Simulated scan of single mutants.
Amino acid sequence: MQSQDTTDIAVAALQRLRRSGQIRAISLDLDDTLWPIWPTIAKAEAVLLQWLAEHAPATAAHLGDTARVRALRHEIVELRPDLQADLSGLRRESIRLALTRAGDDPTLAEPAFDEFFAARQRVELFDDALPALAFLSQRWPVVALSNGNANVHVVGIGQHFRASLSASGAGMAKPEARFFHAAADAVGVAPEHVLHIGDDAALDAQGAMDAGMHAVWLNRAQLAWPHEGPEPHVTVASLLQLCQGLADR
């Protein structure tokens, strides 16, 4: 649990940012910031296996379980480096590879991926996610900036976002500075006037700072900062604490 002193420091730092007038937009990570990603992926992979058992049983038998599904997904990363930033493409091609190896029809990769992708959108939000989205979007334009392939409109939170950028759609990924700059461009502000919020120390916090943005590291697990050099402008333990710090005083 975060100490009261640490909480007070975070809230005070956010209040200073708020009062400075420097923040004119918010960019926000999705996976593991608004919902836990791996339970979602595990459920989607189970749905995929069930679909394959009905439509491509040899492939389902060859894969066996979700661990093998995930291993094949990692294998395709090595085989198709051109798809590194395209998680949908990587997943689709890993399914195609599994079908081909098992002697099933590789064109089934498309409907199989559609089943997986639909299940991947069924996320369970953290308790503080919806209140935080409502709070932030009432005060600033908010841009989703994700290396994942969730669709905020399908998930059911699209009304809170002015724009949504994914690595799959943009052809680039965090921590590339130009991806962060694309988020700033999407709402017509300079990077130095964007506050980026995300859970990943390297991809989100360090990436945002390197791109010239203000960075809030959402550190739910209370980990130590893992990098050398400057720490994030603010570290919070929850989105609730973030909103407390950014509230009008």
Results as ranks from 00 to 15, higher is better:
Pro36Thr: 04
Glu54His: 05
Thr66Gln: 05
Val11Glu: 00
Lys174Arg: 10
Ile37Lys: 09
Val123Asn: 03
His160Asn: 02
Gln138Arg: 14
Ser146Thr: 15
Glu176Cys: 12
Arg120Cys: 01
Asp128Lys: 08
Thr107Phe: 07
Leu239Ile: 08
Glu93Asn: 11
Leu83Lys: 14
Leu52Asp: 06
Val142Asp: 11
Pro111Gly: 09
Leu136Thr: 05
Glu93Pro: 02
Ala184Met: 04
Glu231Thr: 11
Pro230Phe: 07
Phe135Gly: 10
Pro57Glu: 05
Arg68Trp: 06
Val69Phe: 12
Ala25Lys: 10
Gln121Gly: 03
Lys43Cys: 06
His193Ile: 08
Leu79Ser: 11
Thr100His: 14
Phe180Ala: 14
Phe126Lys: 05
Glu45Asp: 14
Leu125Asp: 02
Glu228Gln: 13
Pro39Ile: 14
Ala190Asp: 07
Trp217Leu: 09
Arg68Asn: 10
Met209Ile: 01
Asp86Gln: 11
Ala60Gly: 07
Gly229Ile: 11
Glu54Tyr: 00
Ala98Phe: 11
Leu239Phe: 09
Gly171Val: 05
Asp127Met: 01
Phe116Glu: 15
Glu54Ile: 02
Ser3Tyr: 04
Arg101Cys: 06
Arg122Leu: 10
Ala25Val: 03
His214Gln: 12
Ala150Leu: 11
Thr6Pro: 01
Arg96Gln: 14
Ala129His: 05
Arg16Asn: 04
Trp38Gln: 15
Pro111Glu: 09
Arg80Leu: 14
His62Ile: 01
Ile37Ser: 11
Gln50Trp: 00
Pro141Lys: 07
Phe116Lys: 14
Arg178Leu: 12
Thr100Cys: 09
Trp51Gly: 01
Pro191Lys: 08
Phe180Thr: 13
Leu49Asp: 01
Val11Lys: 00
Trp38Cys: 01
Gly207Thr: 02
Phe126Trp: 12
Pro36Glu: 14
Ala53Val: 01
Trp35Asp: 08
Gly148Pro: 08
Val11Tyr: 00
Thr100Arg: 15
Leu14Pro: 02
Ile197Cys: 03
Leu223Thr: 04
Gln4Trp: 01
Leu130Ala: 12
Leu99Pro: 13
Ile23Leu: 15
Trp35Gly: 10
Val152Asn: 03
Gln244Cys: 09
Gln241Lys: 11
Ala132His: 04
Ala177Lys: 13
Arg18Leu: 03
Gln22Ser: 15
Glu115Thr: 02
Val194Ala: 12
Thr59Gly: 00
Asp128Gly: 06
Arg249Ala: 15
Thr66Ala: 03
Trp225Ser: 07
Asp128Trp: 08
Ala118Ile: 06
Ser3Cys: 02
Val69Met: 12
Ala71His: 13
Leu145Val: 13
Arg73Glu: 13
Val142Lys: 13
Asp29Lys: 07
Ala53Met: 00
Gln50Gly: 08
Ala205Thr: 00
Leu90Gly: 10
Leu90Val: 12
Gly229His: 09
Ala46Met: 03
Ala201Trp: 02
Ala102Thr: 13
Asp65Glu: 12
Glu176Ile: 10
Asp31Pro: 01
Gln50Tyr: 00
Ala205Lys: 02
Val189Ser: 00
Pro226Thr: 11
Thr6Val: 03
Gln84Val: 11
Gln159Asn: 08
Ala237Met: 04
Lys174Gln: 10
Ser27Asn: 06
Ala182Thr: 05
Val234Lys: 10
Phe180Met: 09
Ala46Tyr: 00
Pro131Arg: 07
Val194Lys: 11
Leu133Glu: 07
Ala211Met: 04
